[in-house]
């Protein structure tokens, strides 16, 4: 029993590292539309979805929070940590609820994750800047978040299919 626990920790650590690499790869991509900050593909979410389906909410939350903290330490600041945390917490909670109620496939879950990640960040920005006008960005982000969510969800379902025999 003890061994399986150690294996699990090691596996989650491995996937955290993969998520970190995907965060880095994403930071290298050129901005899709510089006028609207926050447009992203959300590559690390592939890993978060994989873990959410394979190992459950707690494990996904751990990997997500560790990833966000390390990314902020390595590439960002306290400011970026606030944005990322809000996005990550909101998106993971809503994705877990969607999965719990079995409403959508990974594609729908990932769309919810993408759009709510943007929503969390915009809400923090509205709070920090005390300006409701920033909310207008959400119009564009709802659109791009949905499109990105579709692709990430498809990638996630492919990965789940390939790793069908893999167990945490």
């Amino acid at each position: 029993m003890k061994n399986s626990k150690i294996t699990r920790v090691a596996q989650l650590g491995l996937f955290t590292a993969v998520a970190l690499i995907l965060s880095y790869v994403e930071s290298l991509l050129p901005p899709i539309w510089a006028a609207v900050p926050g447009i992203k593909v959300g590559l690390p979410n592939i890993i978060i979805i994989l873990i959410l389906y394979k190992a459950g909410f707690k494990a996904a939350a751990a990997v997500s929070l560790i990833r966000v903290s390390i990314v902020a330490l390595l590439f960002g600041s306290v400011m970026t940590l606030a944005y990322s945390l809000a996005g990550a917490i909101l998106s993971l909670t809503l994705m877990a609820l969607c999965k719990r109620f079995d409403l959508f496939s990974t594609v729908g879950v990932s769309i919810v994750g993408g759009v709510s990640h943007n929503l969390g960040q915009i809400l923090v920005a509205i709070g920090l800047f005390e300006s409701v006008q920033i909310g207008y960005y959400m119009i564009v982000l709802a659109f791009t978040g949905t499109v990105a969510g579709i692709f990430i969800g498809l990638a996630g379902s492919l990965l789940l299919k390939r790793l069908e025999k893999f167990r945490f």
């Binding site: 959508f104 496939s105 594609v107 729908g108 949905t146």
Partner: peptide, 14 residues
């Protein structure tokens, strides 16, 4: 059913 729900979700958001 889930795929249909996915599509409804995407369509509503867009």
């Amino acid at each position: 059913r889930k795929t249909r729900n996915d599509m409804i979700l995407a369509a509503v958001l867009l």
